[in-house]
Design a protein around this nucleic acid. Sequence first.
DNA 1: GAACAAATTGAACGATCGTTCAATATATTT
DNA 2: AAATATATTGAACGATCGTTCAATTTGTTC
Lengths: 203, 203
Amino acid sequence: MAKSAKFDRQQVIDKATALYWQKGFHATSMRHLQDIVDMRPGSIYAAFGSKEGLFKETLQNYKQAGMSQLAECRANSQSPITALKMFMRKLVIEASHDAPSGICMLAKTVAELTDEHQALLNEARRLLCEMEHAFQQLIAEAQELGEIDQSKDPARLAAHIQVQISGLRIYGKLHAGDALLEATLEQMIDDVFAYHPFSLFCP
Amino acid sequence: MAKSAKFDRQQVIDKATALYWQKGFHATSMRHLQDIVDMRPGSIYAAFGSKEGLFKETLQNYKQAGMSQLAECRANSQSPITALKMFMRKLVIEASHDAPSGICMLAKTVAELTDEHQALLNEARRLLCEMEHAFQQLIAEAQELGEIDQSKDPARLAAHIQVQISGLRIYGKLHAGDALLEATLEQMIDDVFAYHPFSLFCP
DNA sequence: GAACAAATTGAACGATCGTTCAATATATTT
DNA sequence: AAATATATTGAACGATCGTTCAATTTGTTC
């Protein structure tokens, strides 16, 4: 045995996640990263391998945080649909003020990267698909509880949620600052669950 | 008088648009741009001022092309709703194979940029809002024709379209390569107009 | 065809990029 | 306390970044 690393790996990844999330992969420099996490280049490269390696870990960290939030919403809700709605509100409305970027980090990465960084692009895709799958499970649970028609395809509904979240978050950054933005977003989120394909009463 | 520029400005802007659209603002280098448009740095800077200046022109060019496409859809359709649906299909489905990026260049720019490039970010916002306004006009026309309930707010419906387009295009790049992707996208576009808030029959 | 004006060229600028590595510091083990 | 092993440091690397500008080319005017 010899000395062990003195930095807190999770804290470093959290700080790196915030910076990457805010600026995107290409606009984030290793210099800036070094300042934010207060480590010298050698230490960072020893711990994470490369700019891409660190980015990949932040993507996974971001997804894990999202999963935790979703689980927390479920724990604090009586029904899976209420949980999903609460989760959407957190992402779309709260995140539009506080978060490093109004946009989902995974969606932003999918939008930013090209074949030139296939590995990272695929990782972001994979993680976002896992989020979609978590939505699907929540929807299946809602079907068992009779909150959603059993005949509907949970994968379809999960895809619908995915589309709404991405679209609403882009829309939120597009109209950031507008007086009526929050009310509009609230309304649109409510509508997602009040009408097709989620409503029991509307075909 | 003296000699006039020998390059075709529109051709140059078109090529620059494609590159910026594909790679994003930060990942596009002036070197690469020089190769693509076959001009030396001095000429580019004389004509466009800076990397940001050229990017701004490509944003405007991209929006103009989008407006033309929308007008073409309207000209080839009997109803404004059909035109809107045709436009969405072009953007979401065709663009997912051919286009430099599956994502709308304006939405991608809104997602990518931060306060650090306020001017460009605001320009992308402004242009995307103009697209939204064009949707709104088409929707108002549909209301006059009785295709949509007069009581509904055209701005609301236009916002809904904006959200769907952004969301679907992200979703398309997320699931690029999936066998059933196209069918899913087709279905989702049809559903946008078959149910709330567009349908006459569903509340 | 000489004089002029604008367009084009390409070498070069300083700054910053991601990354490396020999030197040094510091825990743990013997 | 000496030996060992790993972590940390920070200067430095070559490459590339966006941009500039003196020199040159080229078309127009007189």
